[in-house]
Amino acid sequence: MLKKLVLTGAAGRLGSYLREPLSNMCEELVSTDITDDIGTLYPNERFAQVDIAVYDQIAPLLEGADMVLHFGAIVDERPFEELLGPNFVGSYNIWEAAHQHGLKRVVYASSIHAVGMHKKADFIGIDAPHKPDTFYGLAKCFSEDLGSMYWDKRGLESVCLRILSCAQVNNPRALGSWLSYDDLIQLVTRAIDTPSVGFSIVYGVSNNDRAPVDNAKASFLGYRPKDNAEQFAEAILADAAPADLTDPGEMCQGGPFASVELGKSATKSMNIVNDKKKT
């Protein structure tokens, strides 16, 4: 069992599903968020309200930790100036604090939006070059490159989880991009318990028949998703409008993020169900 794990973004929807399994993997789980409450804590969990954009707030919490799971960010497209603190500076603070405190690994919630302008038909692998669809995606590219550089220059391991869409399946794109919560937990677990990862990228996607990305070169992590969005296909496609083949949102990996104007919200049009786990 690990001694200590730190989770950022603990108040978020994905964080709500990760807290319990993470608490079972370590003696102490430190959950952090900018909000003032994350609900009832698990027996070995403590909460710290911090702003990851402020180094002196987040850095002390990493002392004595084995790994940090960095899920904290603004999770939408915004003007660059709004993303600069939490999504860019926040990532630097995490990697630098992890280095300063001698952590073994950073597990980072990256995103398909780091490669969002690639065509879905290209079936890209983990070695696809960065092709961000938004400032939000650009922050993911920056953070992945931080992870690569800190491994090359300082020996700090990273696993970057390029999550496609971890939310209820309610649109045609999600038939390929869905990551179930159970598969999310397995993905994070493998990112933690694989003995050696160096700098690694893996797509966060379930075992969907229509998955538009290739995880073959990340197979050493042992991530073997079990869920398949095809179970929802008949109902979803029965109500779906014909695809607009001129719309980047239909043709590119990033979905609505690929067609939205820079700096404007992409999630407003996505009908994401907030089925956050209650504690």
Rank of each mutant, 00 (worst) to 15 (best):
L83H: 10
L84P: 05
G85D: 07
P86I: 05
P86R: 03
P86E: 03
N87W: 05
N87F: 03
N87H: 09
F88Y: 14
F88T: 10
G90N: 08
S91H: 11
S91G: 15
Y92M: 10
N93Y: 05
N93I: 03
N93G: 06
N93L: 07
I94E: 00
I94H: 02
I94Q: 05
I94N: 02
E96V: 00
E96M: 05
E96K: 12
A97M: 05
A98Y: 00
A98L: 00
H99P: 00
H99D: 08
Q100R: 15
Q100F: 02
G102R: 02
G102Y: 01
L103I: 06
L103Y: 04
R105M: 02
V106L: 06
V106A: 02
V106Q: 01
Y108P: 02
Y108H: 14
Y108V: 02
Y108C: 04
A109T: 12
S110C: 12
S110P: 04
S110Q: 08
S110A: 14
S111Q: 08
S111H: 08
I112H: 02
H113T: 12
A114H: 01
A114F: 06
A114R: 00
G116T: 04
G116V: 08
G116Q: 04
M117A: 09
K119T: 10
K119W: 10
K119S: 13
K119A: 15
K119Y: 14
K120T: 11
K120Y: 06
K120P: 02
A121S: 13
D122L: 03
F123Y: 15
F123N: 14
I124S: 00
G125N: 11
I126S: 12
I126M: 11
I126R: 11
I126L: 12
D127N: 15
A128Y: 10
H130V: 09
H130G: 12
H130S: 14
K131M: 13
K131R: 14
K131N: 14
K131W: 11
K131H: 14
D133W: 06
D133V: 05
D133E: 09
T134V: 06
T134H: 10
F135P: 03
F135D: 09
Y136F: 12
Y136S: 02
Y136N: 03
Y136L: 09
G137M: 04
G137Y: 08
G137C: 09
K140I: 06
C141R: 10
C141P: 02
F142Y: 14
